[in-house]
Nucleic acid binder design. Structure first.
Lengths: 301, 301
DNA sequence: CTACCTTACGAAGGACGTAATTATT
DNA sequence: AATAATTACGTCCTTCGTAAGGTAG
């Protein structure tokens, strides 16, 4: 026997929807087929994967679910990568970008047009993981993503095999309202502001839950949650003293530099082309981040 | 249609062996079946994957091959993880370790025995990737791996989803023979010793090809290749002036500290238990690396 | 009783082996 | 000519849907 990815897909749908019948509807199977898929998986792996009534993953099912997503994603990425290998270079460039990288993406497009003036290009803004997945599965030609990280550390991204190149590491600052007690300070330690009023804007900046990991501290309770991809809205909330947010210095004028733990705002380029032309990265960085020193070479992930 | 992992396995065997018939022999199929597998893959993906006579992957085939290994490994890891979830805690502990981490693994066993004196434990030495794969597929209960890395960077490992915890970062030194021109120096820059006589010991220390990436320099031509997992043999070669090697300061007494680029010798723990008990890592580190500061929390990879 | 999952069974499709065919060295 | 991959075809196995059977709330 072997683990059939179709069954894995069914299994993930059942876990996600909490129902065999709903999964069947979503995937275009009968209820019976879904039941058979799960039964085959359980027999093959020799473990109960799901509790029934209500439907929820067992311990073993949770383990399988964690792997299944990565496997299915990689399968899609493989198909997309092969398709790209046989397709001739398209006449259009569709770039994805996280909200704070939209400007960078625009400059990348400008750099690309410097060599191909007639290039039809577009930029789509989405969350970091969405950009990474879309690049891996071929929905996007490339992407620019960013986020907080320890200096030199790559950003945590879904494992897709897409080559990643560092574009820049910039200072990370705590954005505060004018007149805030911290405003004008030379630097803050994140440990000291764990209990401040934070704005959780998970689609734009580092989710507070992840920040706790990076800062190695508990706390970071959200005083306000901001859903959406619009940066100016977040900046307005900060300016009107609704809470704090971590942002790159470039965006948050007057922010307070984070001095501890050592964290930077990192920007990365995701694109298959990176693999073939790592030598072009420094030139790209020079044109897009004039003020930033030359970054290291590309590395597959 | 969907990409059947059995076909992927066949495809990787054909690429690896450079022959349909050899792949058939290895997998217990007929040549005909192998031919059909490849034909189905090519039809499904809409791309020629292999050149015939001689058999070699096309551009698209190379892309697929890179993904296929990761997918098949992850499939095995998923099966192993489910098996571990249903099995009760075994009475034995089988640890893997890279050559330079064998001593560390021994101390981890000692630490484990401190809480369970009757524990039957063993340590197996293998290469870094072999240890990672064996832990992922359930052949080992855990592993200790090490290697050169930029400070704070995780070691590059096969993507298996096994949780990784940092155990230590130590100074990295250039091991030289007594009386060597560099001996006694306060520090060396790797850029300055690119053209030295290097010993390539890929199973023990960083392969020279990878070192070129880390040091961002070309060169590092091997004057001597050392295959095998025995550290003392490598040390003897260095001591007898057969060439240079990069090693942790702890092992290479009298080595010259590497000052540029900033590199450290990093040691990591691979084990599923890390996920459940990240809080125990600091205590483990304290008992195994008394001289090293507390490391960060575990992170899944 | 009813919503939902499981089991039984038959039909359609897919995978594999044998054997004949084609192509390359 | 010999070695090696492909194609043709028959058999067996797997998968899916229909429909009947359980089972928990």
């Amino acid at each position: 026997m072997f683990v059939d990815p179709r069954f894995l897909r069914t299994f993930t749908a059942v876990v996600r929807l909490g129902s065999f019948s709903a999964a069947a509807r979503e995937l275009g199977y009968t209820q019976s087929a879904v039941s058979q898929h799960v039964a085959v998986l359980e027999a093959d792996l020799g473990a109960a994967l799901l509790h029934r009534r209500p439907v929820a993953p067992t311990e073993a099912g949770t383990r399988l679910f964690e792997h299944a997503g990565a496997i299915l994603l990689r399968l899609d990425a493989a198909r997309a990568d092969v398709a790209r290998a046989v397709a001739e270079a398209p006449g259009t460039l569709v770039l994805g970008a996280t909200p704070l990288s939209a400007g960078t993406a625009a400059r990348v497009v400008a750099a690309a047009r410097a060599t191909r003036p007639a290039l039809a290009a577009s930029v789509r803004v989405a969350t970091r993981d969405d950009v990474a997945v879309a690049v891996a599965t071929g929905a996007l030609d490339g992407g620019i993503v960013d986020g907080a990280a320890a200096p030199g550390d790559p950003l945590p991204l879904p494992e897709t095999g897409v080559p990643v190149a560092e574009l820049a590491e910039e200072p990370l600052v705590l954005a505060v309202a004018p007149g805030h007690a911290l405003a004008g300070r030379g630097g803050v330690r994140l440990e000291d502001v764990v209990d401040a009023r934070w704005i959780d804007a998970p689609d734009i900046t580092t989710p507070l839950a992840d920040l706790a990991m990076l800062a190695r501290a508990d706390g970071f309770r959200p005083a306000l949650r901001y859903d959406g991809l619009d940066v100016s809205g977040l900046l307005a909330l900060v300016a009107h003293a609704q809470g704090l947010a971590l942002l790159p210095a470039r965006v948050a004028a007057g922010g307070v530099p984070v001095v501890s733990p050592p964290l930077v705002h990192r920007t990365e380029l995701l694109a298959v082309d990176v693999r073939e032309r790592p030598d072009q990265i420094p030139a790209l960085v020079a044109s897009v981040f004039p003020a930033v020193a030359a970054p290291p070479a590309a590395a597959a992930r």
